[in-house]
């Protein structure tokens, strides 16, 4: 065994699960006798967790296979956008040249064209379809529970569709989304179990309830014991 094969140099490969059974056993025996090695393994595991933050695709290199049309479409779009407007970036690079041109031509036209404030009319990046008429949106942060909730209530024919984002309910809570009617009646629009991610980053829910769109006054989150976490007036 060379120095490189001593157990303390295998801890990384061990953490990454790349050792064969025999080597892994040798490392485990070593760990049992060495608190320092156990501490090191704990640190290396943190790094492994950290690598897990990356989508696996992030480490691929090169152009995509069969992506020629994609490249051509992208180049075309860029050419069209470039042609359609005088861009700020171009101004920075081309201003000096434009001034010289103007001086040579003795005309303000070139300057006028090149330095006119560029209409940065970038097309909206993503098209958000307009919600149907009568859609109501509400948001709240409950002062006592700290629950944050945003809801959208969209009318259907005599009933409503509900989309809610709920964050801050403690993980492990069994929750219901409840739509409240003007006359006080309550309809459940869905239920879920709050995960750790849901507690921190929020859970997005789609549901529906048979309450006339005109009668909806609030959407609430409560657990199965009836404890209310948040109520949004709409």
């Amino acid at each position: 065994m060379t120095a490189q094969h001593e157990p303390q140099h295998l801890l990384g490969a061990y953490v990454l699960g790349a050792l064969d059974e025999q080597e892994a056993r040798a490392v485990e025996e070593y760990l049992a006798t060495s608190p320092e090695a156990r501490a090191e393994v704990a640190e290396l595991r943190e790094m492994e967790d950290f690598l897990g933050e990356l989508p696996p695709e992030a480490m691929l290199d090169g152009p995509p296979e069969g992506g020629d049309l994609l490249l051509q479409r992208t180049l075309r779009q860029v050419r069209q956008e470039r042609g359609g407007q005088v861009r700020r970036r171009q101004f920075a690079a081309g201003a000096a040249a434009a001034v010289i041109t103007a001086a040579v031509l003795g005309s303000g036209v070139a300057v006028g064209r090149s330095t006119a404030p560029s209409p940065v009319a970038q097309p909206p990046a993503t098209s958000q379809p307009a919600p149907p008429p009568g859609t109501k949106i509400g948001t709240t942060t409950d002062p006592s529970t700290g629950t944050r909730m945003t809801v959208q209530v969209r009318p259907a024919a005599g009933w409503v569709r509900v989309n809610a984002s709920v964050a801050g309910v403690p993980a492990g809570q069994k929750c219901k989304l409840v739509v409240v009617s003007r006359d006080g009646s309550r309809e459940e629009a869905g239920s879920w179990l709050v995960s750790a991610v849901g507690e921190a980053d929020g859970t997005n829910l789609d549901g529906s309830a048979l309450i006339d769109p005109a009668d909806v006054v609030a959407v609430e989150v409560e657990n199965f014991d009836g404890t209310r976490f948040a109520s949004v007036q709409v």
Partner: peptide, 9 residues
């Protein structure tokens, strides 16, 4: 595209 296209796609 040449460098990151594959990862992105």
């Amino acid at each position: 595209y040449e460098e990151h296209g594959r990862a992105l796609l």
